[in-house]
Amino acid sequence: MQAKASSAPKVRARNVNVFYGSKQALFDVNLDIPDCSVTSFIGPSGCGKSTFLRCINRMNDTIDICRVEGDIHLDGLDIYARDVDPVILRASVGMVFQKPNPFPKSIYDNVAYGPRIHGLASNTDELDGIVETSLKRAGLWDEVADRLDEPGTGLSGGQQQRLVIARAIAVRPEVILMDEPCSALDPIATAKIEELIDDLRAHYCIIMVTHSMAQAARVSQNTAFFHLGKLVEAGPTEQIFTNPNDTRTQDYITGRFG
């Protein structure tokens, strides 16, 4: 049983349908996502990959007209069950957005906000420790250690994005969702984030939406290709990029559409 549990997928989606009002955005998505690895969602704009990503931490709940059908399990537990509180879920499924969105507060407060509201630290020393480890893990500590009380919004774009990742890590999530985390960054900052993602992979299940085929190929171990709200194909990245089963995947990867 133990062996089976460890090889079981971290996130398991079955027959997921998502509607925005009367418009259906996702059609019967079935997908298993393994732990301690990076999974990329690729596909043309409007294909539903971000929608699916936001289903995993129930971010879509905040949109009134959005309705989710089907099952999504995290560690075998139905996250859409009636007794699951989205607040607890989001504490264990962190999220990083396309545009860096630090709070207009100090760097320290940005990272400490999550632990504070969840009561993860019993005293300031402990909180300091969490902030330090999180910033270190996000590879930002060396750059900001001496100016923790400066506003987080004063950092550069790449630094802000790493700050946001540190903020997500601080609440000790198991899964980190990243919605095009590098699309607003220059190549050097992108490289740093990619490096960071590769480091984080050892501890977290990372799910990433990206428009960059090269990035998906570089960073992720598994890739899922979405098209027109349907999951077309999913598998190990190498296989998807070198030997896709579906012609649509082939066409998209080779740049024939998208």
């Binding site: 931490n57 971010m59 905040t62 607040v87 607890i88 989001r90 504490a91 962190g94 999220m95 990083v96 957005f97 545009k99 969105n101 630090p102 709070f103 207009p104 906000y113 999550g114 509201i117 969840h118 946001v164 903020r167 997500a168 601080a170 609440v171």
Partner: peptide, 23 residues
Amino acid sequence: VPPSIREAALGVGASKTQTVFDH
């Protein structure tokens, strides 16, 4: 107030009330 701030707060697990009053 830009929605990205609300998303950021919700994303780290803040409740709706915390999001509104903290951010």
